[in-house]
Design a protein around this nucleic acid. Structure first.
Lengths: 184, 184
DNA sequence: CTGATCATGTAATTCGTTACATGATTCC
DNA sequence: GGAATCATGTAACGAATTACATGATCAG
């Protein structure tokens, strides 16, 4: 039974407890989004599919006028998640980075424009880094509360990842400026 | 006139000279692929679209039984590429990283399995790093030959990027192993 | 009472991959 | 002669986003 990666995002989020589609989306938006995004247009249909497959079960509270439907993992769902986590299939690794793409084609552009590109790329990564740092204390607190190490560990990876790219941009900017000066 | 990013990959490759769809694909596969992939299924239809828009022009050599069609940039195409390179629209930055996703959901997995995940992720990045290093001398030589700095600069970024992730995995592995030892 | 947010879903569209079909050329 | 590679394309499919529709609840 082949599932999409986004299906595993859902199973993973449900492993942490009963949740509605809306809650899953909110969680994704402050956590996995940075390395695996998901939209409503995927989440709701995927929940229906997973329920048909028997991997999750959803229950609607009849008293709830908002017709919220909270899903939880079944035993089969828990097994599917575990199988994926421990499988040794090649990892899906995909990067689409317009900043690097522009940089690649920038020979022939004036130095000022190349610098502007690097600064834009640096700003974008600095901003994501700031976003991640702004939730760091909260995620660390959740780690102490729940004992779950992984989300904080991955958050730290995200912060260091953004820092690496910011640093690379800075170095490339200095290198470009350095050339300009020595050419005078 | 809104173009897809992949259209700009094509325009960028044609900036370097006249090329067939096949040649563009081959070039992408050893260069931009690592931060912007493209398949035949995109390249050929996109070339036709760009020709209809007047941004590229393709010519078939009547003597060539292989019916090769080599494209080159028009003035309009050159302008479209330049506009994109110097535009300050927000950058499309997207990462889909199954390794980080698994890591995120791995609380509850035995330490051995968590270690196996980290090793798999490290191996994947080490392999890409090796691929990039294997073309480094060639790309550096092309830089000396053509004077184009950018492809080599971006290649260096790719190598350092993979190194960073390999290093992060190593540190995370050591941290996990360290805990195991101190728990004894 | 009003705007923000909670909540569920669908439809249209875009982007991209994979697989297939077809045939020429080159290298051994 | 046969395999690898050059070369162009299309069709089917899958993955994901965006926009839309609809309505309840909550905080001020």
């Amino acid at each position: 039974m082949e599932l999409s990666r986004t299906a595993y995002v859902i199973l993973g989020m449900l492993q942490l407890g009963k949740r509605t589609g809306y809650e899953i989306k909110s969680l994704v938006d402050v956590s996995t989004r940075f390395f695996w995004a998901a939209s409503y247009g995927q989440i709701y249909p995927e929940l229906a599919r997973l329920e048909k497959l028997g991997l999750v079960r959803g229950q609607r509270d009849p008293d709830d006028a908002r017709r919220r439907k909270a899903y939880h993992l079944t035993e089969e769902g828990r097994r599917a998640l575990r199988d994926w986590l421990t499988s040794s299939e090649p990892l899906h690794l995909e990067l689409r980075h317009e900043g690097m793409l522009k940089l690649f084609f920038s020979d022939g552009l004036p130095r000022e424009e190349q610098l502007a590109q690097l600064r834009a790329m640096r700003a974008a990564h600095a901003e994501v880094g700031d976003q991640l740092r702004s939730i760091e204390a909260e995620v660390r607190a959740a780690r102490e509360r729940t004992g779950n190490q992984c989300p904080y560990r991955v958050l730290r990876l995200g912060i260091e990842y953004e820092d690496f790219l910011v640093d690379w941009c800075e170095r490339a900017e200095r290198e470009l400026v350095g050339r300009a000066v020595s050419a005078c």
